[in-house]
Design a protein around this nucleic acid. Sequence first.
DNA 1: AAGCGAATTATGTAGACAGCATGTC
DNA 2: CTACATAATTCGCTT
Length: 524
Amino acid sequence: MQKTTQIKHLYDNNVLNICLDTLEKDKQALVFVNTKNSAEAEAERISKKIKPAEKEKQKLEELSQKALKTLDKPTKQCQRLALCFRHGVAFHHAGLHSQQRELVEDNFRNGMIKIICSTPSLALGINLPAFRVIIRDLKRFSGPRGMTWIPVLEFEQFCGRAGRPDFNDTFGEAICIAQSESEKENIIDNYIEGETEEILSKLAVEPILRTYVLSLIATDFANSKKTLMDFFKKTFYAHQFKDIQKLSEIIDRILNKLAEWEFISIKIDKLEATLLGARVSQLYLDPYTAHYLITCLKRAKDKLLRDISFLQMVSYTLELRPLLNVRVREYELVENKAAQYETSILSLEPSMFEPEYEEYIKSIKTALFFQEWINEKDDEILLEEFNVRPGESRAKLERADWLIYASQELSRLIKLHGLISELAKIRLRLKYGAKEELLPLLKLKSVGRTRARKLFNNKIKTIEDVKNVDFTQLSQLIGRATSLSIKKQVGQDLREEKVVVKKGTRKGQTSLKKYDKKKKEKSK
DNA sequence: AAGCGAATTATGTAGACAGCATGTC
DNA sequence: CTACATAATTCGCTT
């Protein structure tokens, strides 16, 4: 065991004190906290007390600028990260844009960043060791149970990040922060001397079990109740579950549902997947969700279809949860929107007194969030209005895209061909975050919603317009390199005729001009 | 079987300004 | 009285 380390008590914040001590030792630290907000706040607090070394200032400033330039328009989060970067500090969580996440990780590895305040997301999967690990929060909010102690396994994950053998660390330190003497004893008993809890099988969750049963039938691994049971008896789940009778009942229930939803047929104990069931399994959809989507799609013919129809449809699935929170003061507003769009909503509205109603209202808000995105609102507005960070909106959009794609496939199978093109449109719009009018332009490579909008606003609205527009004018709008590329895509290769391309130049014409100007001014 | 951080609201403080009293011509 | 700073309180969110 190590001898007790004395840390100078400079501030009334032990995490900060330990961080400062770590810097004195010329080492790095990871701080684990339980929420994204805390990670940002703690990082900011620490950064305010750190003065970076003179020789590192410039590089940190560059880094800071990179954080601001990740998005077209920096969000509050970007500015916060940039502020921390200037002091060699960063925060890390799932809400961070992937490019910024990379910036944080890379620059911690190369030593520019000394302290990262992070949510547990960093301990899971990403290998980013530090000399010191500071575990500020050992409790985390968990559903109806309030603040609960984190699993011992997770504590060990945190500790496992301590020590960098590649930096010749022969040891690492993991430090827990206790609020009181009694909590200190608790921590020692539970975590340091405690036993790791049993690992629970993921199969125990019903949606996963459902998906599995269908998949086993669809792939012909099991074609009867008996073979199905034989398979599950061998799994870890059954081993834990022990009560085979109960498991059998659950499987029976699932089989009945699958048959009712027409994903399988049951003929004298012969199980067979239907065409639809096989596709559901291929799409890796939870059969429950697949059935829900199908009922919504069938309802579409009686509804006034709008963007919100499909957006709400996917928002109301289990796959998109947790949904966006509806604040008290906006509750009424969202309810009004729900009423306003009533004729367009494809899912059934639960009664106001059912517990599901809350989720329904949340699904409306989530749909409104997607709607803003496909109406070209940027990350900053999404963060301000919906409190969704860039990293999180990406994750949500990806799930929505997958479900819309699945809906498209399902429409084909249940012969609702009229919906396919509508779904395809929404899908593209989700991908690019653009209004429908931009879709023709978005077919071009290296044209995203920003460039497409610029072109559109300058009366270049279709591929035909792109063909006809003068190259110089196009260059002025979106830069020469891009113009060359898209002109080529519409069948006009101008590379050798009119334009000379400078070798090694990757930036657009405008930035080159500016650079030249500055040079000239200096030489005068 | 909560607790943090942010937002909002209350409270405190200093300085600007106008009105009034007083003094001088 | 107003404008601003600071303290106290409430609000919202958590994976």
